[in-house]
Simulated scan of single mutants.
Amino acid sequence: MLNKESSGDCTVSTCRAKNRAIKDALDVLNGSWKLQILVSLSEGTKRFKEISREVEGISDKMLSKELKDLEMNQLVTRTVRDTFPPTVEYSVTDHAATLKEVMIALSEWGILHRNKIIGS
């Protein structure tokens, strides 16, 4: 059981609230692809195939699904241009931009962890 003495300033209720918030964030960003897609789009608006080329290993079917999930969670906008054939572009929302520091921190930690585990 967590208590104030054993966990710093984390009481049972504050730990539960923090864990709930982390679970919510992970539910939105779950899987191997969503953060990679957001990193790709953080460099600017892109078309589907551009994202597909930058996110190594993702299938078109999975990319389509993940983009729909990101759009539903208001992290990505999909814009259809009135051209022939229609042009579809994706970009990050202002809300997604709030993840920038999280993505940088995860990238830095990933590099440290990789170096620790495999030594390169």
Score class of each variant (00 low, 15 high):
Met1Thr: 11
Met1Asn: 10
Lys4Cys: 02
Glu5His: 05
Glu5Phe: 00
Glu5Lys: 09
Glu5Asp: 13
Glu5Val: 08
Ser6Thr: 15
Ser7Ile: 03
Gly8Trp: 02
Asp9Asn: 01
Asp9Gly: 04
Asp9Pro: 01
Cys10Val: 11
Ser13Arg: 15
Thr14Ala: 05
Thr14Met: 07
Arg16Met: 12
Arg16Asp: 12
Ala17Asp: 14
Ala17Met: 14
Lys18Cys: 10
Lys18Ile: 09
Asn19Thr: 13
Arg20Asn: 11
Ala21Glu: 13
Ala21Tyr: 06
Lys23Gln: 09
Lys23Arg: 12
Asp24Gln: 12
Leu26Glu: 14
Asp27His: 06
Val28Ala: 00
Asn30Trp: 10
Asn30Gly: 01
Ser32Lys: 08
Trp33Ile: 02
Trp33Leu: 08
Lys34Gly: 03
Leu35Phe: 04
Leu35Asp: 03
Gln36Thr: 00
Ile37Val: 15
Val39Trp: 04
Ser42Leu: 02
Ser42Arg: 06
Glu43Ser: 15
Thr45Arg: 15
Phe48Ile: 05
Phe48Asn: 02
Phe48Pro: 00
Glu50Gly: 15
Glu50His: 04
Glu50Gln: 15
Glu50Asn: 10
Glu50Thr: 03
Ile51Arg: 04
Ser52Phe: 05
Ser52Ala: 11
Ser52Glu: 15
Arg53Ile: 10
Val55Ser: 04
Glu56Thr: 11
Gly57Cys: 09
Gly57Tyr: 06
Ile58Pro: 03
Ser59Arg: 03
Asp60Ile: 04
Asp60Met: 07
Lys61Tyr: 09
Lys61Gly: 02
Met62Trp: 00
Leu63Val: 08
Glu66Ser: 10
Leu67Arg: 09
Lys68His: 08
Lys68Asn: 12
Leu70Lys: 04
Glu71Lys: 14
Asn73Cys: 05
Asn73Ser: 11
Gln74Tyr: 13
Leu75Trp: 01
Thr77Gln: 15
Thr79Met: 14
Thr79Pro: 02
Val80Lys: 09
Val80Arg: 07
Val80Thr: 15
Arg81Val: 13
Arg81His: 13
Asp82Leu: 11
Thr83His: 10
Phe84Cys: 10
Phe84His: 11
Phe84Pro: 02
Phe84Thr: 12
Pro85Val: 02
Pro86Arg: 03
Val88Trp: 06
Tyr90Lys: 14
Ser91Tyr: 07
Val92Ser: 04
Val92Gln: 05
Asp94Met: 09
His95Asn: 13
His95Asp: 05
Ala97Val: 09
Thr98Pro: 01
Lys100Ala: 13
Glu101Ile: 05
Met103Cys: 07
Ala105Gly: 01
Ser107Asp: 11
Trp109Thr: 07
Gly110His: 11
Gly110Ala: 14
Gly110Leu: 06
Gly110Glu: 05
Ile111Ala: 01
Ile111Asp: 09
Leu112Met: 08
Leu112Arg: 13
Asn115Ile: 09
Asn115Arg: 12
Asn115Met: 08
Lys116Cys: 06
Ile117Gly: 00
Ile117Cys: 01
Ile118Phe: 13
Ser120Phe: 02
